[in-house]
Design a protein around this nucleic acid. Structure first.
Lengths: 239, 239
DNA sequence: ACCTGAACACCGTTCAAGT
DNA sequence: ACCTGAACACCGTTCAAGT
């Protein structure tokens, strides 16, 4: 899929590929979470001795890092590459695509925001996002600031969304998850937390696609509300 | 500190308190990261057998959950409780206080966004934040949406900031961390990533307090840019 | 009720040895 | 160069036993 061609290597035939190991790890992650994605478990899944994995990756941290890159490499750039599409739509498409790819593997989400995102695919995404923003007339510097704000929003949203489901390794349908939150929030006592209790219904919907896009648009509104180099501190709500 | 009085319990004198265990865990976390904060390590630190910890917490997940709550309980509500202070300032104070408390324990940040934030202290913070927003005239429902957007921004920023430093358990001074990023980003090839390369300087500053507040203000701008229930999709940059 | 010693079923990683 | 068997130093957790 991502590998164009297997590089030929010296020595005896390789039993495995880095790809195969990553795919096995992802499967284990989806089935049993971080606990199941052990070096020993991975080795068993691909049919080698535990220490054979160290032929492909120096340590477990490297496997984790590679998983993150693998996942970021799966995002389909085509859905937001078209420069004729309005820029807000392009960014929304990017945000939705990223959310879809990452929530498909809940166990991997924490790994993504848990380490530095400086791999080639992460960089490519940053470049793409900046490209969309530069297309609107922003300088690279301003585009970088706006891009980071968007990245914080996207990854923060996804992380909180996945975290909310606890140790579930496959996310239930959105409606189910919202219903579960609704039930949980109904227990908030009105006496001590009147506002949270009053807004329990809204809070249950935090994890919905609708609110995800709503928040993204608010962030975009903020970005376009004034010059990037400044942020308004005087305004107040009309009400 | 947080415990007003030790509840008296039956049975032989307790050797420990939940508080003592959490403090020990936090110390281990600061010294050696998640790896060092093992049940066995904690037990050794407080001077009991490993399994004695299970008298206080049912399992390790409960210790982790308690750590998160412990940390959220440390935020000083006084710095943003004053209703005479302009609401934007109050939210900035809240955001800065939260960042200070969490970045003080980098190893715990991942735990915070890694699980559901539904403890009493988390709820209290949500209630406070909603209170500030309701003070501006928002309905509880709209305040909830705005509050979540802010929470996503704050925790997302902190998570990405801490993650960027990798396995460091005590964050170096901000200037040092930015300098390290600067060095790393200077390696971005202009040919393949022209925009990222051009904005390397800006990108290095992502983790600065200045950009943290800048982003927060942009989010606040977005919240005030129009009615909460909608988000502008028509606007485009002037340039 | 709280703590201990001992054990169980795991980890990640290393090392010497085989091909 | 790649893989294996065996071992090392760890984990979280449970259980029977002591006070």
């Amino acid at each position: 899929m991502t590998s164009p061609a297997r590089k030929s290597r010296p020595g005896p035939r390789r039993a495995l590929t880095e790809e195969e190991i990553l795919e096995a790890t992802l499967n284990l992650l989806d089935e049993g979470g971080m606990k199941a994605a052990s070096i020993r478990g991975i080795a068993a899944r691909v049919g080698v001795a535990p220490n054979a994995v160290y032929t492909y990756f120096p340590d477990k941290a490297a496997v984790v890092q590679a998983i993150v890159e693998h996942l970021l490499g799966q995002v389909d750039h085509a859905v937001f590459a078209d420069r004729d599409v309005p820029w807000r739509q392009r960014i929304e498409a990017l945000a939705l695509e990223l959310r879809e790819r990452l929530t498909a593997h809940p166990g991997a989400v924490n790994l993504t925001i848990g380490g530095p995102m400086n791999g080639p695919h992460a960089l490519a995404l940053n470049e793409r996002l900046m490209g969309i923003l530069v297309d609107t007339g922003l300088t690279p510097g301003d585009a970088a600031k706006a891009a980071y704000l968007l990245i914080v929003y996207v990854f923060g949203s996804i992380a909180l969304e996945v975290a909310e489901s606890g140790e579930t390794h496959r996310l239930p349908p959105e409606a189910e998850r919202i219903a579960a939150r609704q039930t949980g929030f109904s227990a908030i006592p009105t006496e001590t937390h009147p506002l949270s209790a009053a807004a329990a219904g809204t809070m249950a919907g935090y994890i919905s696609t609708e609110q995800y896009i709503w928040g993204l648009r608010k962030v975009l509104d903020g970005i376009t509300a004034g010059p990037i180099s400044e942020a308004d501190t005087s305004k107040a709500f009309a009400g």
